[in-house]
Amino acid sequence: MAKEKNYRYEGISRFFRAMFGRKIVIICTAIVLIIIVLAILAPVIAPYDPAATDYYHMSQKPSMEHLLGTDALGRDVLSRLLYGSQVSLIVGVIAVFVACVIGSLLGMCAAYFGGVVDVVIMRTNEALRCVPAVVLAMALVSVFGGGVRNIAIILGISTVPGYAQMMRAQVLSVVRRDYVTAARLQGNSSIRLLFKHILPNCLSPLIVMMTQQVGSTILSEAGLSFLGVGISVPTASWGTMVSEGKAVLLENPMLGLIPGFCIAVLVISLNTIGDGVRDALDPHLRGEI
């Protein structure tokens, strides 16, 4: 007999082939990987402490000493940029993780148990959706305070309704399929049914949504920081850097433009990867952006 085919392996390789079919996805993945490596290595490669002020070298133009110059307090822009990428990525990943876990659990419960559970979860959800996510996040920040961890969790919570709604729809369609009935009739408990049979069949759209949300969450964090309600001041974050650069936009445009450019590149790259993942996992959606 021919060598046993390993379907799982084959599935993964097909996934990567479909995802990296377009060059732009490869380029964007490379960019994101570079940013991740730089963020991890920031403590090693950053030439200066990002928070150390140097009153002798304030608002300097790029030079050999400070490759991207310094800001109004004399802090090295390159070092702040490297540390700032940490903040962006951590916030993006944690927020999406929080949102995905809470949102999918809520959505699954609403769809699976139905009735009162469904009504309570989904009406609360809709109430939350009436408040714009950024406004909600601002309100929560003013209650719980800023900081990387708080911002991540708050941004996560403010995007929970989207996940809950998507998962509910997904579970509702999967739960009616015969194989779920079959599993139930074998005596599976609800928990096992949900996590072994229903969840794995709902993963594709969830993964697509997660990859697409990382970028927009990073953007929200930058927006909050720019508005001064995000990451508190001494911590370097791309959003606060843009905000600081805004004050001196005319004298020293680089100060605001460089972190702005970084945000744009990271978010665009992440979104493109998200599209790639969607194309690979969900061929029906291909071509619609």
Binding site: Y179, L185, N201
Partner: peptide
């Protein structure tokens, strides 16, 4: 209370495509 009944009564479905979980071996 139905667990032991579930063991003793089984069902085979019409559509062999939708009645098997596509993610399981």
């Amino acid at each position: 209370n139905l667990k032991d009944v579930r063991r003793e009564v089984a069902m085979v479905f019409q559509d062999p495509y939708s009645s098997l979980d596509p993610r399981q071996t």
